[in-house]
Every structure is written in C-alpha cells, then in structure tokens.
Design a protein around this nucleic acid. Structure first.
Length: 273
DNA sequence: CACTTGACCTGTCCGC
DNA sequence: TGCGGACAGGTCAAGT
C-alpha cells in the first residue's frame, strides 16, 4: 500500500492517538508478521509509548524502555487504532491492547509486512536503514541532491531509479508515475539522458505530488487505511496512476499503461517526452 | 559493481 | 460457475 504520504498520514494521527498509552497485552496469529515476538512480548508489556516517527516508508514507535517497534506495512499492511472490543479481521496479524480501552490492529492481507522490536542503539546499524536516501520533503532535499543521487544509477530507467529507496526515500509506484507526469518525463527514459532542467523539474514535481497527496490523506487503491480506518482520496485527483484509457487531465490524450522496472506504469504520450 | 529476476502471500478481476 | 493467469501501494536474496 503505502508510500511516503500514506505512512506520514498514519504517523501524524498516531502521535495524537497513542503517545502516552501503556501496552497491556499483545496477541498475534501469524508469527512471521512479528519475528521473535515470543521473547519480545515480555519486553513490551507495561511499556509506555513515548513517540511515533516516520522514516522512508517505515514507522517507529518509541517505548519508555528505549526499545522501539520498527514497522513496515509493505503492500497491504494497516495500523488501525480502534476499540479493543472490535472483532479482528481475517487479515489481523497482531493486536496491541492499550490502557485506554483501545487497541492497535496490525492488519495485513498479503503478510509481506512486519514488526520488529529493536533497541534504539541498534537501529542505525541496520543496513536497510543506513542505505536509505534523503527524505524528499526535508528542506535539505535540493535539486542538486537529487541530481547527485540519480548519478549513482546512470544506466537504468528513471522510474527504476526513483523506486530505489537508496536514491530517494519514500517514493513508490504511484508517486513515481505522478511525479514523472508533472515533470513531463517518460518513465522509461534512462537517467543519463535527463537534462539538468529536467532533473530540476522532477525535483519540484516529487515534492508537489507528495505534499498534495498528504493533504488528501494519501491514496487508497484497495487496502490502505489511515490510523482511524479511513481511506485516502488522492487517487480521485491523480494525473495518470490507474487512469489508463482515460483522458489526460492536461491535454485530453489517452493515458497509456506499460511495464517499466517490472511495475505497471502510467503516462501521457503527449505531455511526457 | 550495476542491473534484473524470482520469492514472499492473498485476493480480485478478466477471459474462456 | 469454475478455473487459470495476470495483477496489486514493497523489498530482498539470488541470479546474470
């Protein structure tokens, strides 16, 4: 599901909803969703949640012990704060009971997502985190930085490069297509064919689509829900994603769908060159 | 090293 | 209705 705007939406809400709450119980039905939960359970019970953060597409829930829950929702994961009495879904993998009568439900139909309990000190050692590229919405993320990051993948398609989390952190299939449309760049162009002006335009477009999506609560194609279980509305306004066969919102030409970097890829053959 | 291809899973949709 | 195949917000390990 979730790319940067969806994770950001979840995290912003969870900060209000669960910080200060104490974890009273943890139950689960699919061990791979929380490897090592059996031993971790004792370390979790009684812990107070002290903060919630996002990095790339990952969620960190800080605990009073100094440990933290490291969460990746992958394609279909949800993290929903609901009354503890709510019936679990068929896809519910882990439930954290909190001290306010509510619970955090980790739902994940496809079981790709995961939760790990890790010590704060060990976090930055993880290669999956150390290799992450810059956060595109931070002030330090300039067109120059994007150009430098892209130069590490000169000979691949711009789409494959943008999907690479070590180039830019947080973009996924939806927002790559959207940003490339706004920048007027065809997704299968090779990185080393881009002009400096195109990279600059791409930089602006990436920031714009991410901000626009956050303001609309992210994208729900099927599974995505925010922390209150609600859908996001960006796809009602999307430029190209999932709009194959429909008219381009800028020029009226028919949006096309092809495969680039093994992913469904949407573009306008007139607006993008 | 740079890049591409399977694997991890379940559910839905489309064509026959 | 049923069945096979393609496809779906992601990321690794293993290939070439």
């Amino acid at each position: 599901m979730p790319e940067l705007p969806e994770i950001e939406t979840i995290v912003l809400a969870l900060k209000d909803l669960i910080v200060g709450r104490r974890i009273q119980e943890v139950t689960w039905d699919w061990p791979k969703s929380f490897p090592g939960l059996e031993p971790a359970r004792q370390a979790l019970l009684g812990q107070v949640i002290t903060g919630v953060e996002r990095r790339a597409k990952m969620i960190f829930i800080h605990l009073s012990s100094g440990d933290l829950l490291h969460i990746h929702l992958k394609m279909t994961g949800q993290l929903v704060y609901q009354p503890a009495t709510r019936e679990p879904l068929k896809s519910t993998r882990v439930i954290f009971q909190l001290d306010d009568g509510m619970a955090l439900f980790f739902n994940d139909t496809r079981k790709f997502g995961w939760i790990n309990l890790i010590n704060k000190e060990d976090l930055n050692q993880l290669t999956s985190i150390r290799r992450l590229g810059p956060e595109p919405l931070k002030v330090g993320f300039t067109a120059k930085i994007l150009e430098k990051q892209l130069s590490r993948r000169p000979n691949t398609s711009i789409k494959a490069a943008l999907l690479d989390q070590s180039v830019v952190a947080g973009l996924g299939n939806i927002y790559c297509d959207e940003a490339l449309f706004l920048a007027g760049i065809l997704p299968d162009r090779h990185v080393n064919s881009l002009s400096q002006a195109e990279v600059k335009s791409l930089h602006r477009s990436i920031r714009r689509v991410l901000k626009d999506s956050i303001s609309l609560g992210g994208s729900t194609r099927r599974d995505y829900r925010n922390a209150k279980g609600e859908i996001g509305h960006y796809l009602d306004h999307a430029w190209v994603y999932n709009r194959q066969g429909q008219a381009c919102r800028k020029c009226g030409q028919t949006i096309q769908k092809i495969r680039v970097a093994q992913r469904g890829t949407h573009f306008c053959p007139h607006c993008q060159v």
